[in-house]
Design a protein around this nucleic acid. Structure first.
Lengths: 335, 335
DNA sequence: TTGTAGGCGTTATCAG
DNA sequence: CTGATAACGCCTACAA
């Protein structure tokens, strides 16, 4: 093991620990050329590696931040994590990515463990269930940034997608292509993006004076999604278009339609919220709403590092517009 | 900030620091019921959170391991990371995932930083370019496990997929379906899995007494993949089947074929190494070779934690068989 | 059963 | 320019 500590280097070089420390931290302003050289040689000879742990203990910063992702299975999570990691790497920080798996207990444990490990700040995709814990962190002045999901009543910096607007835009697109019977499928309405997307859905229908029909709104767990979709197409007046609330829902929809031999674009129009890496590679390329995951990650990291550096907090929502990428799946259907 | 330390708790409870420490570490065997209660109350009242950093410094273990992934864009990387994280979570460890991005410099930096942070061990998808560094770690007795790729001449535990065998099996499958002209497309032969897959490819051709033709073996960067594929199909005798060396290559192949309107399964047969989450959802479902990423991750984590606990090392190759999942893309082609 | 003292490997302060 | 010395927050003998 790396039994070689600063004291050993100091002895080898014939100087004191403090001098070695100076050297390591690049303060050679007032350092003799020879001392410098001696230390340099000693370090190389012994293969000395500084112990960041000890340094962190002393300095009270670890140069690490924690990222608690809601559910790593989402494409957005991966993109955002990647982005945050890149940003950290450029700024000599380290990101620790944890997966709460949509489980508030896990989220809580991760928050506690990461804080015990003294990470300098946290970026959280909040499950929304640990409000008291969030609140206490924020009140303490601990640096936190929320990502993707908002939680009511918290004064915290948040990075969000423009869910309502993007959904409404995609709906207007479908409506302008002649669709009047449009369904929406999402997971249960337990997080703000899902609620907002539903909101955008209704808003666009209202604008167009189309009815909002309860039987067209499906909010089910992924495992039960297919059977709910089945009910949808068995309706007396089945929808002619479907809005899939995110990438996981989309996969279910795709499998379902494939099993039922319902052809996208011909039998039913489709729009998906979330960028799907292979959306253009399926039989009928799929219209998607692309969230700028990379940019969102960069912004979150930037804001967090700012908070850490300046020891401040903020209460701002950074809302990112999304892009509607129109492909064949949402073309006009001739009935 | 969490200004409340053990000393503060001790004062609040009217005991000494060591007693509090005992309490925290679950040694209440010889502890008075009342002392115990007082400490418990003090902790709750003050909202005390132990500082793992200080503990780690003393104990010389951080309960963290580092995972350096070759390139996070591969599906396997994601699966394996996820698996390692799960295993760690169950064993009260923390995994720090880093992405070397196929860049030896980055890999080196990560190894150094992680070790400076005193992580207890490392799981590495080696780029293969930092042999000296690997060697010195191993000689030091530092716990390391290699994943996915092997590096010659190193006595280190490794977790690998049975690349040669799986590739050969898939080739035999194609050959038995009547294919004689089979091409292979991989990224440059800089890592062992690519070399091994090529090996399996040649082996199967030899077994079947089919010629190994240089013009059917493409090894190109992802960015240049399409133009190489183009050369392939422009050959006088173009291949009737293609083996795609991994998921990234597959995406290029898919795009290429789509652009050229070459229909998979009808115009060309296809087999892909790597599980592709949507392989069954494209127009012609794709035959894949599935690596047991989850199991591989579990094994690597298990082996590493073992090494850490017992302060031993090992030199064993854990080779995992892969599964050939036959779908339409590799059906017999009638010419 | 509880307290005291020393140390883990750094950094910060302040003399010299 | 360099070197003592005291923290940082916790753990571990050993003493009481």
């Amino acid at each position: 093991m790396a039994r070689v500590t600063m004291a050993v280097v100091a002895k080898e070089a014939g100087v004191s620990k403090s001098t070695v420390s100076q050297f390591l931290n690049g303060r050679f302003e007032y350092m003799g050329e020879d001392t410098r050289k001696k230390i340099d040689e000693a370090i190389k000879k012994l293969g000395y590696q500084p112990n960041y742990l000890a340094r962190s203990l002393k300095q009270k910063r670890t140069s690490m931040i924690g990222v608690i992702v809601g559910n790593i299975m989402h494409r957005l999570s991966t993109e955002v994590s990647r982005s945050i990691e890149d940003y950290c790497h450029e700024h000599n920080m380290q990101a620790i990515i944890c997966n709460a798996d949509d489980n508030p207990e896990k989220e809580k444990k991760y928050i506690e463990v990461l804080r015990a490990k003294q990470v300098d700040g946290l970026i959280i995709f909040p499950t929304g269930q640990n409000v008291e814990l969030y609140k206490s962190m924020i009140e303490e002045g601990y640096p936190v940034v929320f990502m993707d999901r908002k939680v009511d009543g918290l004064k915290v910096n948040s990075v969000l997608a423009a869910n309502i607007e993007a959904t409404a835009e995609s709906m207007r697109h479908l409506i302008s292509n002649g669709h009047k019977r449009i369904a929406i499928a999402t997971q249960p309405l337990s997080t703000s993006p899902r609620v907002d997307r539903l909101h955008g859905y209704k808003q666009a229908l209202n604008e167009a004076s189309l009815p909002v029909r309860a039987e067209y709104m499906v909010h089910a767990d992924i495992k039960k999604m297919k059977q709910e979709l089945d009910k949808l197409i068995c309706l007396q007046e089945p929808p002619t278009a479907l809005f899939a609330g995110n990438d996981l829902v989309f996969l279910e929809v795709l499998e379902f339609l494939k099993e039922k031999r319902i052809k996208i674009g011909r039998d039913i129009a489709l729009v998906v919220f979330d960028n799907i890496p292979f959306a253009h590679l399926v039989e009928t390329p799929v219209t998607t709403i692309a969230q700028p995951g990379y940019e969102m990650g960069q912004k979150a990291a930037e804001v967090l590092l700012q908070q850490i550096k300046e020891d401040t907090q903020g209460f701002h929502e950074y809302v990112f517009p999304c892009e509607l990428v129109i492909r064949e799946s949402s073309q006009k259907i001739d009935e």
